[in-house]
Design a protein around this nucleic acid. Structure first.
Length: 407
DNA sequence: GTCAATTCACATGAAAGAGACCACGGTCTAGTG
DNA sequence: CTAGACCGTGGTCTCTTTCATGTGAATTGACGA
C-alpha cells in the first residue's frame, strides 16, 4: 500500500462515526455495576459472608455453575460491596483474596497456590526451590502477623483438584485450628457440577458448609445482559434490530454462556467497524462466530508443544485419507512416520493416548472411547473443526513442524 | 437360540526418572585497606 | 577482611517412560431345546 493510501485510510477512519463508545464494557474483565438475574445468588453470598464484618468466621461456601453464568462477577461484586462497608466502618482486618486456580504458572499447583497467597499477604516467595511445607509456614506466619479475617476465593477450583488432588483443600480447611489471631474461610468456585463428589468426604463436608448453584442464563436473560451492556458500549442505534436477539440465541444454545454472548457482540461490532459500516448487522454475527472459533483454534494450536502439534498433524493426515472415525492405533502409526520425517524421537503410545485425550479436552477433536467388541477398545477420533479452519491449522502445523506438504 | 467365557486393542493408573529451574549455605577468589 | 563468584545439595515442576491393571462388547463355543 502506498503512503497516500494509508494516510487516506487513517483519515477516513477518523472521519467515520465510531461504533463503540466504550469498548471495555464488553470485555471479559469488566466489572459491571449491576448484575441482572443474579440477585438471589448474590444475596445468598452476602448472607454467608456477612459475619466477616464482625470479624467472625463466615461459613465456607461452594459455588457451582457452568462457564459464563456470572459466578465470578457475582462473588467479586458482593465481596467489593462488603469491603466497602467494612472500610466505612473502619474495619481493616478484613481481606479478600481472589485467585484463579487455572492460571498457568501462578496457581495451578499446591506450591504455587500457597506461594501466591503468601505474596498477596506481602511476602516474597521464589517461584521454585523451597520445600512446600516451608511455604506453608511462611503463609501461616504472614497470616498470624496480619490478624485478619481472610476470605479466600478459589476460582476454577476443580481444575486445581484435578491436577493436584485434594490435599491442599484439606490443609486449607484445617488451617483455622492452627491459627490463633486470624481466620480463613474459603469460597470455592467450580464449573464442574459433580466435582465435589470425588472429594475426600472430610474436605467435602467442611468445604461445602454452604452451597449455591448458578443456573445457566436463558436467552431472555442474556438479552437483558446484552442490552444493559450495549447501551453503555455503543452509540444509540448502532445495532440493527435482531442483533442482540441473535447473539443471545447463539449463546443460549451453548449452555447460557453470557461471556460468549458478549464476546460475540463485541467481535461482530469490530468486524462491522473494520469493514467501514456504521451499523452492526445480523450477518456480522455469523462472521464473528466463525472468527472467534478460528482464532481460538489457531491460538491453541500455536501454543501447543511440538509433540502435541505432531500428534494433531497425524490426526489431520489420517482423517484426510479417510472419512469417518479414526482409532488411536492408526494415529499412532502415522505419528511415528511423521516423527521419523521431522527427526524427532517418537513418544510411546501411552503418552500419545494421553495427548489425544488432552486434544479432546481442548475441543479441537472429539474423541470418545468405544469398545468394538472382539476388535478391541479405542478412542474414536473425529475433528471438531470445520474445513476452512482445518486448512489453516494444517498450514500452521506444517510450518511449525518444518514439514513440506507432499507425502 | 442362549449364555458365559474369551479376546482384542487399547484405556487408564501408578510410580518413577530425566532434565530444567531455583534457593540456600558453604567455599573459594580477588580486591581493598 | 569482605563482597562476590562458584559449587553442591536439595527442592519443585513438567514431560515422559515403564509396568500393571482395567474394560466393553463382538465372537466363540458349549449347551440345551
Amino acid at each position: 500500500m502506498i503512503k497516500k493510501g494509508l494516510t487516506g485510510y487513517f483519515e477516513d477512519f477518523l472521519k467515520k462515526e465510531p461504533i463503540f463508545v466504550n469498548k471495555s464494557v464488553l470485555q471479559s474483565n469488566y466489572h459491571p455495576i449491576e448484575i441482572p438475574h443474579r440477585e438471589g445468588q448474590m444475596n445468598q453470598i452476602a448472607q454467608t459472608l456477612a459475619p466477616a464484618l464482625r470479624n467472625n468466621k463466615p461459613s465456607n461456601l461452594f459455588i457451582y455453575g457452568k462457564t459464563g453464568t456470572g459466578k465470578t462477577v457475582s462473588v467479586n461484586h458482593t465481596a467489593d460491596q462488603m469491603l466497602g462497608v467494612a472500610a466505612q466502618n473502619g474495619n481493616k482486618n478484613l481481606k479478600v483474596i481472589y485467585i484463579n486456580c487455572k492460571l498457568k504458572k501462578i496457581a495451578d499447583t499446591e506450591y504455587r497456590l500457597i506461594a501466591q497467597l503468601s505474596r498477596e499477604l506481602g511476602k516474597e516467595i521464589p517461584i521454585t526451590g523451597l520445600p512446600t511445607d516451608e511455604v506453608y509456614k511462611i503463609f501461616f506466619s504472614a497470616l498470624e502477623e496480619k490478624r485478619t479475617t481472610l476470605i479466600l476465593v478459589l476460582d476454577e477450583i476443580d481444575q486445581l483438584m484435578k491436577k493436584t488432588g485434594d490435599e491442599i483443600l484439606y490443609n486449607l480447611t484445617r488451617i483455622n485450628s492452627e491459627l490463633t489471631n486470624s481466620q480463613v474461610s474459603i469460597i470455592g468456585i467450580s464449573n464442574d457440577l459433580i466435582f465435589a463428589d470425588n472429594l475426600d468426604p472430610r474436605v467435602k463436608s467442611s468445604l461445602s458448609e454452604e452451597e449455591i448453584i448458578f443456573p445457566p442464563y436463558n436467552a431472555l436473560q442474556i438479552q437483558d445482559i446484552l442490552k444493559q451492556r450495549s447501551s453503555k458500549a455503543f452509540k444509540e442505534g448502532v445495532l440493527e434490530p435482531g442483533v442482540i436477539e441473535k447473539c443471545a440465541a447463539y449463546a443460549a444454545r451453548e449452555h447460557g454462556d453470557a461471556r460468549r454472548a458478549l464476546e460475540l457482540l463485541r467481535v461482530s461490532a469490530e468486524l462491522a467497524e473494520r469493514n467501514g459500516r456504521a451499523k452492526v448487522s445480523i450477518h456480522d454475527i455469523d462472521d464473528a462466530e466463525e472468527k472467534i472459533e478460528r482464532e481460538r483454534v489457531v491460538d491453541i494450536v500455536i501454543a501447543q508443544p511440538k509433540q502435541f502439534q505432531t500428534t494433531l498433524y497425524s490426526i489431520l493426515q489420517v482423517s484426510a485419507g479417510q472419512r469417518g472415525l479414526i482409532s488411536t492405533g492408526e494415529v499412532y502409526e502415522v505419528y511415528k512416520k511423521v516423527c521419523y520425517k521431522t527427526g524427532t524421537r517418537p513418544l510411546t503410545q501411552r503418552r500419545v493416548s494421553d495427548i489425544v485425550a488432552e486434544l479432546d479436552m481442548l475441543g479441537i477433536i472429539n474423541a470418545k472411547v468405544t469398545s468394538k467388541g472382539r476388535y478391541g477398545r479405542t478412542r474414536e477420533i473425529e475433528l471438531a473443526i470445520n474445513d476452512s479452519i482445518l486448512n489453516k491449522t494444517k498450514k500452521i502445523l506444517e510450518k511449525d513442524l518444518d514439514l513440506n506438504t507432499e507425502g
